[in-house]
Design a protein around this nucleic acid. Structure first.
Length: 890
DNA sequence: TTATTCACG
DNA sequence: ACGTACGTGAATAAC
């Protein structure tokens, strides 16, 4: 028989999570009555995506009753020092309870007790009745309740990403402890969040060690005299009273005098009828749209607005010429790679004069359309200008007059609003009068452009209309963010520079690639045989699972690191094992060779266009959180360079004309120069003004060398790692891992760095403070990245957000600079009448192909354009190289 | 679809 | 005390 399911939810803890998960949206999510709704929205998503699909038999949301509880009676300072619940959250609590009830779940609170105790009590009752219990909370303390029949689900990030604690998982996380021992662990460590003390100087590591040795707090204290004389022993004895008080406070009650029983909390499921007015009152447009699409809402489904449109025929082409003012232009492609996808329809027009649609893109070649599209004075509204430009270019039309790109502008306003589906993106902007492609075309095997003209054309027309109607709203937001120059002067011009680079493509010497490939294949089979022989069996070397079994079980090598699913066999692990077993060396080489063969030989050959023997990557301009580009189909930003074997792949990238060369130019230390500029640090700036070797200069400073003393290789290597670390948002742990010293030593080095570069220290502190206050950070060009986790109470999430707050202005400003350089570069090459063509961008370098006759000029021109792209307080430095292949441009 | 590994700046 | 360096894409295995 299937066990009945009992679901218990920690209301307060999840409400806090929900509130802070959407804290950056706080000012935007306000209902027409002025009520903040961010926690309500996130909590509702949680109920929709996690609770409703579970369909438990019984469910309850437990809430804290008030400030005073049994625990505060026992210990005045319990949960003292906690900052007050923000009023923006407090006002949402009554609605949260109502929302829970409307989802068919009982809400409950009990005077003197906390939500934990209600959950603990019902969990034990449920178990006694033979049920399977699930507890959902944001508070790890509840993991003490885990048993074979009770799983504690703890949220990791937001309210929909979770981790399941079973007794086995508790043992894994806490080095063998049972859930019940969590209580004694808390007794020893105390809890800063709940503000109770524990024993001085005992943290989780020591606590776990003690409990693994003595089992329980009581047993530990019974035998405390047997411990070796130590500071810890003294602390244990001195803080005994605190330990037992903390134990009491940490213990979740399982016999609270509840007035509800299991029978009273049957799960009823959402009351769709009653929830509609509730959503309407809170202006939950997205949730209402979802109810409609799921058919829970009467066909009150407002019919989509009727938009005026005409199918293009030979007879009405004249009307197209009458279009004036702004027009939306959208071309439909079933596949995302616009360089090769079929084109299956288009729409051109505007709401006032009507939209013109057809399945035949060839019609765009008619003068009526061509003249309109190529007219710089007729402003175009589009979704993804780069795709539109490339698609029209394939038809022989040069798009001009592009003014608004919904996708690009939306990404600048908030880097997360970058959905490549027009409908989905419009929904994120609270515009619902357009469906997603998935809704209209289906997905996967079911994907099909509708055969019915009405359905298909209306979808196209609603897309065009969405672009038109969102235009003003998004421009306003760009303006509020002071991002109009970023949009008009950087991103929009860049999109056409990128389009031309993609269209140009880079020629691949496929024969060369195949020759290299056959050598690799040969080497692979040698290595394979050698590995099988040494392992004594044949297995799949590319399976980390099978490889782990061979190395760690069969051959008994020591386990250095584990992953979520088993043994780690990553490079750093294997390198540590190499001395112990020769097979490891062979595996490392096998991995390296297989990577080259699979990703760079076979992978590249697959995407070479047969027509021109080139690869045409697509640069994603609206993806990264920092403002960098990324490159796909193929990725030309990660072609091997560090190891000679891989670097040879670059010999296959060649100019498209005889007597031409590949020319490359790269910024030297651009990120550290940006750092010197934005921090204003005098010492760092001086080093760059004097064109010093920056890593050696840093080494001199942090190791306190006199001018006569030489910087040795080890010092420079360490200083280089520190410089990297500063850019990444440094931590002592990270640095210690990268240079293989103790954490303490790493911390000393960082302290020295900050003493020597006080401007950098002040800036890092300041940027974090600003991020906490604003919820975002910005680059030199006002590119913005939101950091919702910057105020999280979760150490990991907050730490990550803090490092990001430091890294993004640096990495993002460097991205701004090279983008500006690219725009100027295209103009200069044109103005100088050069044939040289810009082909690739790899974050801090640009790759060109050029006639040999132009090379000499380029060696001064290109670095000049790049180093004068922006004026910083330190000089920018650019190095350039050229040769017959990309490999030789070094 | 998710996890792991490894290529780049 | 906590436990990670920042940003990406592609291939493969294993669900």
């Amino acid at each position: 028989m299937v066990k009945k399911q009992l679901l218990l939810i920690d209301g307060n803890s999840l409400a806090f999570r929900a509130f802070f998960a959407m804290h950056n949206q706080l000012d935007r999510m306000i209902s027409h009555d002025g009520l903040h709704t961010n926690a309500l929205v996130a909590f509702n998503n949680f109920l929709d995506t996690i609770v409703d699909p579970m369909q438990p038999d019984y469910a309850l949301v437990a809430w804290d009753a008030g400030k005073r509880t049994l625990r505060t009676d026992k210990y005045d300072d319990y949960k003292g020092g906690r900052s007050k619940t923000p009023p923006e959250l407090s006002e949402q609590f009554p609605y949260l309870r109502e929302m829970v009830e409307l989802h068919g779940i009982k809400s409950y609170e009990l005077v003197d007790y906390e939500a934990d105790d209600i959950i603990g009590t019902l969990a034990r009752q449920g178990e006694a009745d033979g049920m399977q219990v699930t507890i959902i909370t944001g508070d790890k303390d509840l993991t003490q309740l885990a048993t074979e029949n009770t799983t504690v689900v703890v949220t990791i990030k937001g309210v929909t990403e979770v981790e399941n604690y079973t007794p086995a998982h508790v043992a894994e996380k806490y080095d063998g402890l049972t859930p019940h021992q969590i209580i004694d662990m808390k007794a020893l460590t105390g809890d800063t969040a709940d503000n109770y003390p524990g024993v001085t100087k005992i943290g989780p590591v020591t606590a776990i060690k003690l409990l693994n040795e003595w089992g329980t707090l009581e047993n530990l204290y019974d035998h405390v005299d047997e411990l070796k004389k130590s500071k810890m022993k003294e602390n244990l004895i001195n803080d005994k009273e605190n330990a037992f008080m903390s134990q009491d406070l940490a213990t979740i009650r399982t016999e609270a005098p509840l007035e509800v029983g299991i029978d009273d909390i049957a799960y009823k499921g959402p009351d769709y009828e009653a929830i509609i007015p509730f959503y309407q009152n809170l202006d939950f447009k997205q949730q209402l749209a979802k109810l409609k699409s799921q058919g829970h809402m009467e066909t009150t489904k407002e019919p989509q607005k009727v938009l005026k449109y005409t199918e293009v025929t030979a007879d009405n082409l004249a009307e197209i010429s009458q279009l004036s003012g702004d027009v939306a232009v959208y071309i439909e492609t079933p596949a995302e790679n616009y360089h090769i996808s079929e084109m299956v329809g288009f729409v051109v027009g505007n709401a006032e004069q009507g939209y013109y649609v057809s399945r035949s893109v060839e019609l765009l070649l008619m003068p009526a359309f061509r003249d309109l599209l190529e007219d710089n004075l007729i402003k175009k509204n589009v979704f993804n200008a780069k795709a539109t430009y490339v698609l029209l270019n394939r038809l022989g039309i040069t798009l001009a007059g592009t003014d608004f790109d919904l996708l690009l502008a939306s990404y600048l306003v908030d880097t997360n609003e970058n959905n490549n589906d027009l409908g989905a993106l419009a929904h994120e902007h609270e515009f619902y009068d357009v469906e997603t492609d998935e809704e209209v075309y289906g997905k996967g095997a079911k994907y099909a452009i509708p055969a019915d003209d009405n359905i298909y054309f209306e979808h196209l027309v609603h897309k065009a209309n969405a672009i038109d109607l969102l235009r003003e709203k998004i421009f306003n937001r760009l303006n509020e963010h002071e991002q109009l120059p970023l949009y008009n002067e950087i991103e929009l011009p860049l999109t056409f520079v990128l389009a031309k680079m993609e269209i140009a493509g880079i020629t691949v010497d496929t024969q060369r690639l195949q020759e290299q490939g056959s050598k690799l294949v040969e080497r692979l089979s040698e290595l394979e045989q050698s590995i099988y022989r040494q392992a004594g069996e044949e297995f799949n070397i590319q399976s980390p699972k099978q490889l782990g079994e061979v190395l760690f079980e069969k051959m008994g090598l020591p386990v250095i690191k584990k992953t979520k699913t088993g043994y780690s066999t990553a490079v750093d692990v294997l390198e540590q094992l190499a001395a112990q077993a020769p097979i490891v060396e062979a595996i490392l080489e096998y991995r390296q060779v297989a990577k080259l063969q699979q990703t760079y030989i076979d992978g590249l050959l697959k995407v070479v266009h047969s027509t021109d023997s080139k690869v045409h990557t697509r640069y994603l301009q609206t993806l990264t959180q920092t403002g960098r580009l990324s490159s796909v189909d193929p990725n030309l930003q990660n072609i091997p360079v560090r190891l000679e074997e891989g670097r040879k792949i670059r010999q296959a990238f060649v100019p498209s004309h005889p007597d031409w060369e590949i020319f490359g130019a790269d910024y030297s230390q651009i990120e550290l120069r940006v750092l010197a500029h934005i921090t204003g640090d005098e010492h760092l700036q001086a080093a760059f003004r004097d064109d010093e070797d920056i890593h050696a200069a840093t080494a001199r400073r942090i190791f306190g060398l006199t001018p006569e003393q030489e910087v040795d290789g080890l010092m420079r290597r360490k200083a280089k790692a520190v410089n990297f670390g500063i850019v990444y948002g440094i931590s002592d742990y990270g640095l210690s891992q990268s240079i293989g010293v103790s954490r303490k030593e790493a911390k000393g080095i960082i302290d020295r760095y900050f003493e020597e570069y006080p401007g950098v220290k002040a800036w890092t502190e300041n940027v974090i403070t600003e991020a906490k206050a604003n919820g975002y950070v910005e680059t030199l060009s006002n590119r913005r990245r939101y950091l919702p986790e910057i105020n999280s109470r979760n150490f990991n999430l907050r730490g990550f957000a803090e490092r990001t707050a430091m890294n993004t202005p640096i990495q993002g400003s460097a991205a701004d600079i090279i983008k500006i350089a690219m725009i100027k570069m295209e103009a200069v090459l044109e103005a100088e009448g050069l044939e040289t063509t810009m082909l690739l961008q790899v974050h801090d370098e640009l790759i060109f192909e050029a006639p040999k006759a132009e090379i000499e000029k380029l060696t001064t021109l290109i670095p000049k354009v790049m180093d004068s792209a922006v004026q910083l307080d330190v000089p920018l430095k650019v190095e350039s190289h050229h040769g017959l292949t990309w490999y030789d441009a070094k």
